[in-house]
Every structure is written in C-alpha cells, then in structure tokens.
Computed example of a mutant assay.
Amino acid sequence: MFTELLDPDNTSKDVWADSAYRSEESLQELQAQGFREQLQREACCHKKLTAREQQGNRSRAKIRSRVEHVFEVIAMRTGSTLMRGIGIVRIRAKIGLRNLAYNVSRLVLLVAA
C-alpha cells in the first residue's frame, strides 16, 4: 500500500511516515519517483541511533504529531475510526461532517484564546 499512496502530482515531494515504512524497497521507490523521505528511524538492540538520527527523529516527530493529533481527536470524539454506511457517497458525507465538526470546534477554541 505504501507505494500506491505516493502521488506524483503532489506539490510537496516530502513523504512523512513512521519507522514501519522504512525498508530498502520503500526507500528505493521513493528515490526512483523523486520523493524526499522523512521517515522515522528505529533503533534495535544491536544498533543504537546516533545523536544526529535522534535529533532527526525529534524534528520529524514535531511535524507528524501536528497531523496525527487531529486524527486522534476526531477518533476520540466519534468513538471509532470505523465507519458503517451504504454507499461511498454516504461515507464521504459522514467524513465531511466529522471534519466540519472538528474545524468548528477548533475555530471556537482559537477565537476564545
């Protein structure tokens, strides 16, 4: 699924993902398609991360957490990320309403601050 999600028409060539997507195959595919990898690195028991790799993970985590927190809040408020419905049009409408509700609540918090 990783390579299917890569969109050559995307205006940003950065690909942000966690360490589960880091493999030689995926790195080669990113390079072949002209993307810049922003994948987390993972230490193992035989090889610790260098100070530079740890700093890179911290800077990537700051960016990724801003996006992931949005999905976490939406999932917490709705109880689940699983959606049931008949037809893709209804599911898209439900997703749109969830996003709208999140954006309105976020706007209320920003205006109140």
Rank of each mutant, 00 (worst) to 15 (best):
L110M: 12
R66G: 01
A17T: 08
T78G: 10
R84K: 11
Y21E: 04
L107A: 15
V108F: 10
M83K: 09
S23H: 02
I86Q: 07
R98F: 05
R52G: 03
I95N: 01
L109R: 15
R84F: 09
L39V: 14
V89S: 11
E72S: 13
S59V: 10
L39I: 15
S80P: 01
R22W: 07
S26F: 03
C44L: 00
A17Q: 02
D14A: 14
C45T: 15
I95L: 11
V15K: 09
R84T: 05
E29S: 13
E24T: 13
R66F: 00
W16V: 04
R84I: 08
A61Q: 09
S23G: 08
S80E: 06
M1H: 13
N103K: 10
E42Q: 14
R84H: 12
E29C: 14
D14L: 10
N10S: 15
I88E: 12
G96I: 03
I86R: 14
R52T: 13
R92D: 13
Q40D: 09
E24P: 06
E29F: 02
Q54A: 08
Q54D: 05
G56M: 06
L109T: 08
A51E: 12
V111T: 09
L27S: 09
R90S: 10
T3I: 11
G87N: 06
G85T: 02
S80A: 11
N103L: 10
R36M: 05
E24L: 07
R98N: 08
S23C: 13
Q54S: 05
D9A: 13
A32M: 02
S23Q: 05
Q28R: 12
S12L: 07
E37C: 05
Y21K: 04
K94F: 05
G79Y: 02
A61Y: 06
L100W: 10
A112Q: 11
A113W: 00
N57W: 00
V108S: 08
Q31V: 04
F2E: 10
K47Y: 01
M83L: 15
S23D: 05
A20E: 08
Q38P: 00
E25Q: 13
Q54K: 15
K47W: 00
Q31A: 15
Q33V: 01
A43D: 10
L97F: 14
T50G: 08
Q28H: 10
R58L: 13
A43N: 06
G87W: 02
R90M: 04
V104H: 10
S80G: 04
L82K: 09
D14H: 14
H69R: 15
M83Y: 09
T78V: 01
G34P: 01
S19L: 02
V89A: 13
K62H: 11
C44H: 15
R66S: 08
R41A: 07
I86D: 03
R60N: 11
T3F: 00
Q40G: 01
L6P: 06
V15C: 08
R60V: 06
H46P: 00
I91S: 01
L110P: 00
C45V: 12
H46V: 03
L97I: 12
A17C: 09
E53N: 03
R58V: 06
A17K: 03
Q28P: 00
M76L: 04
C45S: 14
F35M: 08
V73C: 07
R98V: 05
S105D: 12
S80C: 07
V111M: 12
